[in-house]
């Protein structure tokens, strides 16, 4: 039987995403029912790049399913520091564990890992490329806040060039009906051409680009804010120049819809003012909570653990 991996959120069909969301919500409603589902199973978390939320939410998910976790939280403490290739590390670790989650700073590293892994492999972020479990978290958030996936104007704001969560979510939402996008970013950090050509234009999905958040905010059903990521820049002066281009605050939210859903993959720096946290439209801390449940559902699906067994 072929082992199933997750490199990009679009590796899952729309139906599979819906099944995962359904299962995540069931787990959330009755977590005790699932707390031994992964007994005797081991998750490896191979994090070649620092991460708090993704790594801890993977680990929390496995612990909550009754499984155990091993791995590293920094490339410097792995054999990669001795010059071992990603494929050799993953091949070796797949001998020790039942499922692997990996984050690596280089784009395409997840593809390399999935090619050699003998156990299910989950991409926990490969450079500025894909971050499918964040996308699943985002989809669960959208569904639980809005109760549907269709008929939205979605605004993405901030670093749309290197923001992998943006790329993955655009691809995932483009599969639903009557979705349009407004991409708000400085000209240096616009959405990549391949997404515009291959995903949006190819499927006749409406979109436009803007540099002005205030001007666009009233049109949005969902606003996805992102951090300008220091680690993606080779030149620090470019980062400093661009990092505070957009700051969402109550003043800017005055013209926004009453039921706007404000999202952010976190961590944030300055792009969402703390005063917005208490606004009922802020969904970003709910997002963080949902991240654990969707990863629990994903681990169960990839390990092919039947719900009735739990």
């Amino acid at each position: 039987m072929k082992v199933r991996h997750l490199i990009d959120s679009c590796d899952l069909t729309v139906k599979e995403v819906e099944e995962l969301i359904k299962l995540a919500n069931k787990i959330m409603d009755n977590p005790n029912k699932y707390n031994t589902c992964c007994k005797n199973k081991i998750l490896a978390t191979l994090f070649f790049e620092p991460s708090t939320r993704t790594r801890l939410s993977f680990e929390a998910a496995m612990h909550r399913l009754g499984g155990s976790v091993l791995g590293f939280a920094d490339g410097a403490s792995s054999s990669g520091a001795k010059g071992e290739s990603v494929s050799d590390t993953v091949k070796t670790v797949s001998c020790y564990t039942d499922i692997i989650a990996m984050r690596h700073p280089k784009e395409g590293s997840a593809f390399v890992a999935a090619e050699v892994s003998n156990v299910p492999f989950i991409n926990g972020g490969d450079g500025g490329h894909y971050h499918p479990t964040q996308t699943l978290t985002d989809l669960l958030t959208i569904y639980n806040v809005k109760n549907k996936f269709e008929d939205f104007v979605i605004g993405f704001c901030g670093d749309l060039k290197f923001g992998r969560t943006v790329h993955s979510l655009v691809k995932a939402m483009a599969r639903y009906k009557n979705i349009s996008f407004i991409f708000i970013s400085p000209v240096e950090l616009v959405i990549p051409d391949y997404l515009k050509k291959d995903v949006l234009e190819k499927n006749n999905i409406k979109y436009y680009e803007s540099t002005n958040l205030e001007k666009e905010i009233s049109k949005l059903d969902i606003l996805y804010m992102t951090r300008v990521q220091k680690e993606r820049f080779f030149n620090e002066s470019d980062y400093i120049r661009l990092k505070d281009t957009y700051i969402l605050n109550q003043e800017k939210l005055k013209n926004a819809k009453e039921d706007l859903c404000i999202m952010h993959p976190l961590p944030r720096v300055n792009e969402i003012s703390r005063e917005v946290d208490s606004d009922s439209r802020a969904a970003y801390f709910k997002q963080a909570k949902y991240g654990v449940y969707i990863r629990m559902a994903l681990i169960m699906k990839l390990l092919e653990i039947e719900e009735k067994v739990c």
């Binding site: 280089k106 784009e107 395409g108 593809f111 450079g127």
Partner: peptide, 13 residues
């Protein structure tokens, strides 16, 4: 030529 590509560090790929 993408400096962020995995092939930029793993030259045996």
């Amino acid at each position: 030529k993408n400096p962020r590509c995995i092939t930029s560090v793993e030259t045996k790929l």
